[in-house]
Design a protein around this nucleic acid. Structure first.
Lengths: 209, 209
DNA sequence: CCTACCGATCGGTAGG
DNA sequence: CCTACCGATCGGTAGG
């Protein structure tokens, strides 16, 4: 009875990778089944339709966020520490597996309305917390007064998602360096992303702890 | 003899829109032909294969950049004016038709290696001009000394492309406002993008002319 | 630019 | 979870 759940989980993992790299329309149920080593009809036993498989893949990915983010929020208390922590957790989450960013990006492009509905119920709640913290920072004179909290947060999310999804192309294009220098390029890109986010947020430029 | 070229151009336009919105794999030659009002076999007369159609669509889009950007560079002379002008031209280019950003984003996700090869030959040249101008600004003390020119440019490109491609989703999610407020949301987003780019670039915060 | 056609593959079902 | 199967659609070709 454990093997059965393993097959389902393996199908989810394989589908996530395939959808992220080839897209939903560009991925056949056959190749996902082949990846796991079962028949296509067996895949359709666990997931009644291709659309159901997509739903499960996206939901699983957003669920991981639901676990990761509150933990980061709870761990840090001061505003400045909280900002650095959240950004770091987000960067690690997507950099650990860029397919996550590619999957979400593709879903935004493929079904903007469906993605928007999901974001409203699953992401909007904690987004309000972040923008309120920013406004508090503005009242205290730490955060730039001409910053638009909601719009700024959108830009940072776009930056984190886009940088993770396209980072590989960018890293090997800005400097067409060797494979050994590949990690350096990724480090430079992430460091600069943090610098851009921080310097566009705070009035002064003190480094984080 | 003019009608014939019009059909080809119409096919290119229809394919651009379809590929941007539904993706390459998610778009059949049949619907592109239907959009224009010709038979699928006629499409395959102008573009021998689906892959050829894609190549033509992407090339046409990058060609438009080749005309737009040098004009913007030539129009502005001072460094600060040049930066504002280039960013403004880029934002207008993609905001005028967000499908351009979606198309390029999708191509990066679908065929990263092919996109990288194109970027190296068609975008890398003027990218060197921009990073050199940034370094000059650093020598003159106008630009933040801890900024990484290549990495910063990558972030700004990701931001412009991502913001245009995902702007619609973001605008209607951050504040689930009415259609009348939709333009306001887009304005806020673009204004904040410019602010983020500028404040992460310059040491002081003087507004542009 | 059209009619007519093809082999391959698609998502999905029947039945066990 | 499998075998066997299906109608629809896919990109592409032949021939004019």
């Amino acid at each position: 009875m454990n093997d059965a759940l393993d097959v389902r989980a393996a199908l989810l993992t394989a589908a996530t990778r395939r959808f992220a790299q080839g897209g939903y329309a560009g991925t056949s149920l056959q190749v996902v089944a082949d990846d796991v080593g079962v028949r296509k009809a067996s895949l359709l036993y666990w997931f009644p339709s291709k659309a159901d498989l997509r739903e499960a893949v996206i939901d699983a990915q957003l669920d991981r966020w639901k676990d990761t983010l509150p933990a980061a929020l709870a761990a840090a208390t001061t505003g400045r520490d909280r900002f650095a922590r959240i950004l770091q957790v987000a960067l690690e989450f997507f950099d650990e597996d860029p397919d996550r960013a590619r999957l979400l990006l593709r879903e935004c492009l493929d079904r903007p309305d469906a993605m928007r509905a999901r974001l409203l119920t699953r992401v909007a709640p904690w987004m309000g917390l972040v923008t309120e913290a920013i406004r508090q920072g503005q009242r205290e004179g730490r955060v730039r007064p001409d910053l638009d909290p909601e719009a700024w947060l959108v830009q940072v999310v776009v930056l984190v998602l886009g940088s993770a999804a396209l980072g590989d192309v960018a890293d090997r294009t800005v400097l067409h360096h060797s494979a050994a220098q590949h990690q350096d390029a990724a480090d430079r890109r992430l460091r600069e992303l943090v610098r851009v986010a921080r310097s566009s947020l705070y009035l002064d430029d003190a480094p984080e702890g």
